[in-house]
Structures are given as C-alpha cells and as structure tokens.
Computed example of a mutant assay.
Amino acid sequence: MATTLSLFHVSAVALLILSSAILNHGRSTSVQDVCASLDQPNPLAELFPNNATGVLNATLVIIPITLETARRLIPPQYGILEQAYRALIPDFPEGMYPVMVQAAHDHDVQLRAYGITIDDFSRVGFEFPFLDLLGDGYSSFRWAPAQLITAAHDIALEGSRAYGTVVSPAEWEPVCDAYRALPNGATYFKGKSVTTSEFVEVEMSRLQDMTLNPYPLDFFKNITNQPTFANASTCDNMIRWFNTSMSVGEFAPAPVLGRIRANAFPYEGVEKEYTGVYGVQIATPFIENNYLDCQTMRGYAGTGGPGDSYIEGVNSNEL
C-alpha cells in the first residue's frame, strides 16, 4: 500500500536552512545581488507555510545508455526496474536504460512560516531513475549521486552534501536563469566547477509539438516525482506540480531536441558528448520533504496516476 506523507510536515530542511543562514550570514555574495531571475514567483509558499516550497525551472533530457553500461555505473545492490519504465515508454529500445540529465534553476525557495527565503541557485547532474532501492521489486527511486551547484550558495551545497551527494561548487551561464537564448534560437545552459575540470553544457532546440518527442510528459512527471537518494542514508521527497498555471499557455512544457557535452560523474576525466537527445523544458512549483527514512517511501504513489501532483482540497489548476 502506498505511503501517504503529510504536506504539513515541518521539514528537517527548516533547521538546516535556519542554522546555515545564521552561520553564513554575510559570508558570500548573493546571486540576487548580481541579477534578477525571469522565473515566476513561488505560488505554494502561502498554501504550505510549514514546508519548503519553491519553483524549479529545468531542462530534463533523456540519454539512452545500454543496460550493461547502466549496470556498471549503478551500485550493484540497487536493481533496475525495467518493467516500470517500459510501462511508460513501451517503444524504448530493447537493452537500453534512460539516464536523465537535470539542468535546473531553483527559484524563490521559502519556508514561509519561519520567514525564511533562500537565494536562487543552479544545479545540474546525471540522475538514474527506476531503481529498486528497497528490494521490493516495485518501488521506484531515483539515484542522484553527484551535482554541480552554485559555488556561492553554502546552504544549497551543504544541503546536498547532507544526502551523501558528491558536490562540486560551480559557476553558471546564465547566472540567474535556467537557460538563455542563442542567436540560432536554441537555448543554452552550462555549469563549470570552480575546483575541478568538471562541467555540463546543455544546448537544446524547441520542437513544435510534444508529439514529436518520444518521451511523453507523464514519463518526466513520473521520474521527477520519484523519491531521490545519493548514499541511501536518507531520501528526498520533492513533490513537483505539473498541473498549475505555471505550466500552461506560454509557460507550457516545451519539447526539446539537442546535445549535451559533459565531463562529470559518472564520466570524470572523460569528456562525453550526446547528440540527438530529447527532453522537455518546464517550470514546476514544488513542495519538499527532506531527509526522510527511505523505508517510509515504499510503494510511494506520487509518480503517476490520478494522485500525482494533486493535493486534496486544493484546486491546483487555479494557482
């Protein structure tokens, strides 16, 4: 039976953000001191003041790799739930596994009840969905072992490291948004570590219609709502809403096709380029419950079906 998590849970991130904000006050230059983001404001902070809420504007790209390669990269104790992703994308090539690159900008992150707002930051990394963390054969988790994160943002850096994530402080192009427009009409986003040679560069062109994308929106909705872990000491439950005014009309999900060039985990020291890869660009508001016991996420039903991105008693289409 699926586990139901209270959205009014006072997240452990409250203590992390509060203590970090006090300890680091005045020590680093705020991204907001440099420029302002074009992202829309957080529509959930007032509705869920005791939770960490915000907006995540992201380019999500699927890179097909062989199951043999996936098995080498993913720790052996975590099974791959191939039947789970094939139920969503039945035409996905045989013998292949969908790695996701998430290049994202976190905006207007708040804990309204505590009067806390943290500065925007960017992040990017290779993520591995549909993993059998609990060994039950059906609960899908997403492994996000490493990230590049905004170098000046101590709260985001330490918050990610607390999961056991391998974190590289990074600089970004653009600084304040999820991507910028190129003269050829494509979008561009790059994160480069300030301490190592790691980088991830994402250049995508928008397609006219979602039907031109081999991956339906429900596939991305499923992956991004899977509980996430790094070293499995705790799990992150980020509930991303795909059915608000933030993702309709001119802000509707945009299917994209392009390339990714990277030297980052799991390919440190080896530059890789992936061309002809498909994805989607979408901004979603989110509610986040941090540092949860992964066992409590067994059978979590927030990754597909009528319960996804839905909160009882709230008409999210009116947000």
Rank of each mutant, 00 (worst) to 15 (best):
F251D: 14
N24S: 13
F199M: 06
A230D: 15
W241D: 15
T303A: 15
I17E: 12
G125D: 02
T224C: 09
R27M: 11
G115V: 05
T187H: 14
Y267A: 10
P227W: 00
Y97W: 09
P75Q: 01
Q110G: 04
A186R: 03
I116K: 06
P253A: 12
I287W: 08
F219G: 00
F141S: 00
E198K: 05
L157K: 04
N231V: 04
F92R: 02
G125H: 05
K221I: 09
T66K: 09
D209S: 11
I116W: 06
R261S: 06
S205H: 12
E171M: 13
H153T: 01
I239M: 15
Y291W: 08
T234C: 05
S233H: 08
G79F: 00
R86W: 10
F141C: 00
F48C: 10
G279V: 04
A58C: 06
D119S: 03
T150V: 06
Y278E: 03
P41Q: 03
F229C: 06
L257I: 09
A58F: 03
I62T: 14
P227Y: 00
I260F: 04
G191L: 08
V31K: 11
I22F: 14
L207W: 07
F220Q: 05
T117F: 07
S205F: 08
P49L: 06
Y163W: 06
W172Q: 05
T228H: 05
L292I: 04
Y310K: 11
R161T: 15
Y215W: 07
Q208T: 12
L18P: 13
L81I: 02
N24W: 15
L182W: 03
P145T: 00
I62C: 08
S30W: 05
G135F: 01
L47M: 10
N243I: 07
L23D: 13
A103I: 00
S193W: 00
Q102L: 11
A113F: 12
E288T: 09
A58Q: 14
T296D: 08
P90W: 03
L292V: 03
G185M: 00
T296F: 01
C294Y: 11
E268G: 07
T296L: 08
E198H: 10
E46A: 14
L319K: 07
N50A: 13
L217H: 04
M100T: 04
V34K: 15
S140D: 12
L5Y: 07
I22C: 13
N213Y: 11
T284C: 15
M204S: 02
S168W: 02
Q32E: 13
E46P: 01
Y267P: 04
T228F: 02
V202F: 02
M238G: 13
Y179R: 11
I89H: 06
A181R: 14
A170P: 05
F128Q: 02
T211Y: 15
R259F: 09
A178L: 05
P49Q: 07
M96I: 01
P145Q: 02
P266Y: 10
E250M: 12
Q281P: 06
I22Q: 11
P255G: 09
V277L: 10
A144L: 09
L182M: 14
S316N: 14
E312N: 04
Y215I: 07
P253C: 10
S6I: 00
A12Y: 12
V101R: 00
A178G: 05
S245V: 09
